[in-house]
Design a protein around this nucleic acid. Structure first.
Lengths: 144, 144
DNA sequence: GTTATCTCATTACTTACGCTAAGGAAACTT
DNA sequence: AAGTTTCCTTAGCGTAAGTAATGAGATAAC
């Protein structure tokens, strides 16, 4: 995909606007009021990876290390995350979720159901299918 | 789309994470350093609507009126937007783009080309097609 | 026709969340 | 053993949003 057609340009413009607007709304429609979107995202990442160091998390979330330090500190203060010394390298720290995070996440899944219903009410089946197919690509794009 | 399958739940979760991460990156990859993403988005909205009042813009961008007042003030200070009294209701203000905004937008389109190339380099044709198809739906979703 | 209420834009203040710069401890390197 | 690098952290700052309160103009009620 090296050729830049006019359609591609307008598509990327549309994508950009859509992502920015939707992200602004997501910031408010958050399922758990006490957790910021990035904190939520970190818990999701930990769900996939099991555990990770702050540096790894910062790279995955595309955030600077100091920001991740604060996010991890917040999550630890809320009892959602555990910080343990790295077994081999004592500079590093290993972050993992607590049982409480597990419970909180499954609890918030019900709330997400309601939000999802409201979200997709305005979409027809075809539109939702398009979005579903594109979601993984969006995630890939965010990681490039 | 009222039925909430397990696949739908995981899809919305993926969509959420992807949008949030990508928006964070977009915030940095902005084509014009001097304009915030929302300011850019407002210019885009004005391109579609021609002109609008601050209140209308605030509703469209899902931002509180005071924020839109400040955004419009910024844009006016940069000479990208014009504020004129409403012909019928003197409480209201009509905001429209200047010729300078027109020039700036078409100028920044070239920069967007380069960003687009870098953006889609890591995607194959099929992935990009999925994204292209989903972009309008994303915009619709953001407006619901 | 004056008073009350409502709406729109604005001002002032606060909050949220990112960043850069700088520090301290542990690990490599020579 | 001293110097350099890497990782996390602390401190301080900037941006962009939000809430609460103000003022001016429109609409409604009496």
């Amino acid at each position: 995909m090296t050729e830049q057609s006019e359609a591609d340009l307008s598509a990327v413009s549309s994508l950009r606007a859509g992502v920015m607007r939707l992200s602004r709304r997501l910031r408010h429609q958050r399922v758990d009021e006490s957790l910021s979107p990035t904190e939520m995202s970190v818990l999701g990442t930990l769900a996939r990876c099991g555990s990770a160091t702050p540096g790894e998390l910062a790279r995955k979330e595309h955030v600077q290390p100091p920001s991740m330090t604060r996010i991890v500190a917040m999550l630890e203060a809320k009892g959602l995350v555990r910080r343990e010394p790295h077994p081999e390298d004592r500079r590093q720290v290993v972050v993992s979720r607590t049982e409480q995070a597990e419970a909180m996440l499954s609890e918030s899944r019900r709330k997400r159901d309601a939000w999802l219903a409201a979200l997709t009410e305005g979409l027809d089946e075809n539109e939702w299918e398009l979005l579903r197919a594109a979601a993984p690509v969006l995630e890939k794009l965010a990681q490039l």
